[in-house]
Computed example of a mutant assay.
Amino acid sequence: AFAFAEAGARVVAVDRDAEGAARTAEMARLIGAPAAWGEEVDVSDELAMEKLAEKVAAEYGIVDVLVNNAGIGLSGSFLDTTSEDWKNVLDVNLWGVIHGCRTFGRQMAERGQGGHIVNTASAAAYQPSRALPAYSTSKAAVLMLSECLRAELADRSIGVSAICPGIVNTNITATTHFAGADAAEEKRLRKRTSRLYGLRNYPPERVADAILKAVVRNQAVVPVTPEARGARFLSRFSPGALRGIARLKPPL
């Protein structure tokens, strides 16, 4: 949101945390957005997303660039991951993207003036891991959805980019659910993972820069961070190596 604001775009910041969205909009105005608004929505709620799209179009105008960025973390073995765990991660990570693309993408198509859709996937979309079966599946689906939409919407001058970050220092680790862990163990794992991401300290601002470039250049798949680019290379030219890496147990 801030990167687009600095580039001079009007910004609609959307979050299920209304206060957080409002703060983001306020900061976006301060750093250069001609106008910015905050809206509250749960991206997994189809009806709420439809109402949001209608409101945005009526009050602010049809969006030129849509960024589907909401996501939640889920770690743990497949056998420890419950049906409810699967539902939670797919509702946000996949269905949230589907709802965003369908509601706002249809408006772009009907307007007939082009546009761009950015879907945040992950290096996990093409890098299998015994520790991330549900999360990786959700992100792989986002990557394929993006590729399919890119093909469908090209003749309407609507670009679609899948952004695939690796280890980026954001607060997703503080809310990641660890399947099969009790409350105390989950707290320990969250703290440990947050510390590791902090030590890696790859800033989200660099991902934002990659998103802006993807929109300007109409890039299809954009790995961000060295490990994401390395995994992308292996997925294309040495998938067996990635499968071997996937078998490694994560440190406790």
Rank of each mutant, 00 (worst) to 15 (best):
L145Y: 10
A125W: 09
C101E: 06
R130S: 12
S138A: 14
A151Y: 07
A109P: 01
L149Y: 12
L145M: 10
C148S: 15
H99K: 11
S136N: 12
D155V: 10
G100E: 09
I98V: 14
L132N: 14
S138Y: 13
A140E: 10
G112S: 07
R102T: 13
Q113C: 06
G112V: 01
F104H: 00
S146T: 06
K139Y: 07
A141D: 04
A121Y: 07
H116T: 00
L145K: 08
M108H: 07
H116F: 07
A123W: 08
A125E: 08
M108Y: 03
L153V: 01
A131W: 09
M108D: 06
L153E: 10
A125D: 01
G115C: 03
L143P: 01
R156P: 04
E110F: 01
P128D: 06
P128Q: 05
T103G: 05
T120E: 03
E110C: 00
N119T: 01
I117A: 08
R150A: 09
E147K: 15
G105T: 01
E152Q: 09
C148A: 15
V142F: 11
L149C: 08
V118A: 05
A123L: 03
D155M: 14
I98W: 11
H116M: 03
H116G: 02
L149R: 09
A124W: 13
A134R: 03
R150Y: 10
C101L: 03
A124G: 08
W95N: 14
K139R: 12
E152K: 15
R102S: 06
Q113Y: 03
A109S: 01
A124D: 04
T120G: 07
A121E: 05
E152W: 00
Y135W: 10
G96C: 13
R130C: 11
R150S: 14
M108W: 10
T137C: 15
D155S: 12
T103N: 14
P133I: 04
R111A: 00
R111K: 07
T120Y: 12
M144A: 13
E110P: 00
T137Q: 14
A125Q: 09
G100Q: 05
K139G: 04
E152V: 02
T103Q: 13
V118G: 00
E110R: 00
P133T: 04
A121M: 02
I98R: 13
A140T: 06
S122R: 04
